[in-house]
Simulated scan of single mutants.
Amino acid sequence: MKASPEDQRRLLDLQAVDTALAQLAHKRRSLPELAEIDAVSRELSAMEDERVRAQVAVDDLDRDISRFEKDIEQVRLRKERDQKRLDAGGAVREIEGLQHELATLNRRQSELEDSELELMEQKETAEATLAEVRGRLAAAAERRSAAEKRRDETLGDIAKEEEFKSSSRGPLAADLPGDLVALYDKIRLESGLGAALFRSGRCGGCRIELYGADLARVKAAAPDDVVRCEECRRIMVRTAESGL
C-alpha cells in the first residue's frame, strides 16, 4: 500500500486520539467507585437480612408480650368478679372456695407479670440490636450514595472528554485516504494499536528493535510505502525521529 509520508505521519495523530478514547473507555470500566458501590451493595444486602431477622425478633416478642397482657387482663377480670362475690358474702364453703381461687389467681398473675417483665427486657435488648443494625444500614446507604455521586460526576467528565475526542477524530480520519484508514482500523481493532512511530530502529508498537535484513527492508522502502512490522503487523510510521 502507498500513502504519502504526511498522511502516514497524521496516522499518529489519529492513533493518539484513539489511544485517548481507549484510555477513557478503560477508565470508565475501572472506576474505583464501581468496586466500592458493588462492595457496599453486598454489605447492604447482608445487613438487610440482619435487619429482617432483628425485626422478626422484636415482632415475635411484641406478639408474646401482647399474649401475656391478654392473659393478665383475664386474670384481673376474674379476680374482680371473685372479689365482688366474696364481698357480697355467702356460704362458708363458697367463701373458702373464692378465697382459694383468689390466692391461685394472685399467684398466676404474679407468674404472668414476671414472665412479661422478662420478655420486655428481652424486647429492649432486641430493639437495641435492631436500632444498631438500622444505624449501620443508614451509614452504608450514605456511603453508597456518596460513591454513586462521585461515579456519576466522573462519568460525566469522561463523557465530555470522549465527546471532544470523538469530534476531533472524524475530521482527522476524513482527511486521510480511505484504504489507509481501513487498514489502520483493522489492525487497531485486532491489537488496540494500529500505527506507531518507528524510532531509532525500534517498532513503537511491539518495542522490538530491528536488525539486519529487517532493518534494511525498512531503510530501503520508498517514503510513500506503508511499512508494517514483521512481528506485530502494525503500521510503522517513519519520520525524522526514525533515525533512518
Rank of each mutant, 00 (worst) to 15 (best):
residue 150 R to G: 00
residue 90 G to V: 03
residue 75 V to K: 00
residue 109 Q to D: 13
residue 120 M to G: 12
residue 66 S to N: 10
residue 94 E to K: 11
residue 196 A to L: 03
residue 149 K to W: 02
residue 184 Y to A: 05
residue 153 E to I: 11
residue 136 R to E: 05
residue 193 L to M: 10
residue 135 G to R: 02
residue 63 R to I: 06
residue 93 R to Y: 04
residue 94 E to P: 02
residue 146 A to E: 04
residue 95 I to L: 14
residue 148 E to S: 06
residue 80 E to L: 15
residue 168 S to R: 13
residue 66 S to Q: 12
residue 130 L to Q: 05
residue 58 V to K: 03
residue 126 A to M: 03
residue 63 R to W: 06
residue 154 T to F: 06
residue 183 L to I: 07
residue 116 E to V: 06
residue 150 R to I: 05
residue 73 E to A: 15
residue 155 L to K: 04
residue 90 G to R: 00
residue 75 V to Y: 00
residue 91 A to Q: 09
residue 170 G to C: 09
residue 136 R to L: 01
residue 57 A to W: 01
residue 120 M to C: 11
residue 89 G to T: 04
residue 134 R to F: 00
residue 132 E to R: 09
residue 153 E to M: 10
residue 131 A to D: 08
residue 95 I to Y: 00
residue 149 K to C: 05
residue 76 R to W: 05
residue 135 G to Y: 01
residue 188 R to S: 01
residue 192 G to V: 04
residue 120 M to V: 14
residue 124 E to M: 12
residue 104 T to G: 11
residue 191 S to P: 03
residue 101 E to W: 01
residue 57 A to H: 08
residue 164 F to S: 15
residue 114 D to P: 00
residue 121 E to S: 08
residue 138 A to V: 07
residue 100 H to S: 11
residue 70 K to T: 13
residue 58 V to M: 05
residue 72 I to W: 03
residue 85 R to F: 08
residue 173 A to K: 08
residue 191 S to Y: 09
residue 125 T to C: 04
residue 162 E to Q: 15
residue 78 R to H: 08
residue 113 E to D: 12
residue 155 L to I: 10
residue 79 K to L: 09
residue 112 L to D: 00
residue 65 I to W: 01
residue 99 Q to S: 10
residue 174 A to S: 14
residue 92 V to K: 14
residue 155 L to Y: 04
residue 105 L to P: 02
residue 153 E to W: 03
residue 63 R to Q: 11
residue 139 A to S: 08
residue 87 D to K: 14
residue 84 K to Y: 06
residue 147 A to Q: 01
residue 186 K to I: 03
residue 154 T to V: 13
residue 133 V to L: 01
residue 156 G to P: 04
residue 87 D to G: 12
residue 96 E to I: 08
residue 143 R to L: 00
residue 146 A to C: 00
residue 158 I to S: 04
residue 104 T to M: 09
residue 159 A to T: 13
residue 57 A to F: 02
residue 190 E to M: 11
residue 196 A to T: 04
residue 61 L to N: 06
residue 133 V to R: 01
residue 197 L to C: 02
residue 150 R to S: 07
residue 98 L to F: 07
residue 126 A to Q: 00
residue 177 P to H: 10
residue 172 L to I: 15
residue 175 D to F: 08
residue 122 Q to L: 13
residue 65 I to A: 12
residue 176 L to E: 02
residue 177 P to C: 11
residue 118 E to M: 15
residue 151 R to K: 14
